[in-house]
């Protein structure tokens, strides 16, 4: 199993898409600077120490889901369609183990990317906006400004990035489930982006559906670490758990029986 995970990590790190993604994270970090210059975020307190927390929602709602979709398209769909899955499957390893190794490798890479994004945010944030005296955090469109000591704020940031792995895994399992059925990585990535847009759109027009939509829980960290609304966090964990377990179980069942024809 360890060797299988190693194989996946080697492939992911040899793939230039990972580095393109890292570069995009860098660019995304520069967007608030443009907003500041354009005067659109004038009343929100941003400083270096709170900058990663400020950026987190953007990562969770957009950057990371797209990134995860692109990586899964490579790891699962393209690998199948390019006849590369056949290579591993004619050796004495079980299909279930192979798929689990892919999931674990993806989780590891996602975690590493989150750490990278946090560090980039700290460095770029304090370079652009200065380190700041206090840890002040206020979300776009939000009423409340949270104030913490620098130490507490940084711990909350770290915790928030860590907690955010949970919704990202859930999202990844949904995409993985689709990826097992697609024959083209490009089509899968397109569909994934469509899903991201569609979900947020549906949530806007039909509020009643919101509790069932995965993207409603992307910012789980706010419930857990900021508003400390634990009943909301509990609901989130149940829904996200369902989004993780169901596609994974059905996907695994499907994959172990799938005809590998490429």
């Amino acid at each position: 199993m360890l060797n299988l995970i190693k194989n996946e990590i080697i492939k992911l790190t040899a793939n230039k898409k990972l580095y393109v993604g890292m570069f995009i994270i860098l660019i995304v970090n520069l967007l608030p600077l443009l907003e500041k210059l354009a005067g659109t975020i004038v009343d929100i307190p941003i400083s270096g120490q709170s900058f990663p927390l400020y950026m987190l929602s953007t990562y969770l709602n957009l950057v990371m889901p797209i990134f995860i979709s692109v990586l899964i398209a490579d790891m699962v769909t393209d690998e199948y369609a390019n006849g590369l899955l056949t290579l591993s499957l004619i050796h004495p390893i079980s299909r279930a183990k192979l798929l689990k190794a892919k999931v674990l490798a993806l989780i590891m890479i996602t975690a590493l990317l989150m750490i990278y994004a946090m560090i980039v945010g700290l460095i770029l944030g304090s370079t652009i906006f200065g380190w700041g005296e206090h840890f002040l955090f206020r979300d776009v469109n939000a009423e409340i400004t949270y104030a913490f000591s620098t130490g507490a704020g940084l711990m909350i940031t770290l915790g928030s990035y860590a907690v955010s792995i949970i919704p990202l895994i859930a999202f990844a399992m949904v995409i993985m489930f689709l990826a097992l059925r697609f024959n083209s990585g490009g089509a899968l990535t397109g569909t994934s982006i469509g899903i991201i847009i569609f979900f947020s759109f549906i949530g806007e027009i039909a509020e009643g559906l919101r509790p069932f939509l995965i993207n409603n829980y992307f910012t789980l960290f706010k419930d857990v670490l900021l508003s400390k609304d634990f009943s909301q966090a509990g609901t989130a964990l149940v829904v996200l758990g369902a989004y993780t377990i169901m596609p994974f179980t059905i996907g695994l069942h499907y994959f172990t029986r799938k005809d590998i024809v490429y």
Partner: peptide
């Protein structure tokens, strides 16, 4: 025969060697 084009010949073999 299919290979990971972005890996070297040896790395491609290593991928399979890791399965045994």
């Amino acid at each position: 025969p299919k290979f990971y084009p972005y890996l070297s010949g040896r790395q491609n073999l290593q991928q399979i060697a890791n399965l045994h």
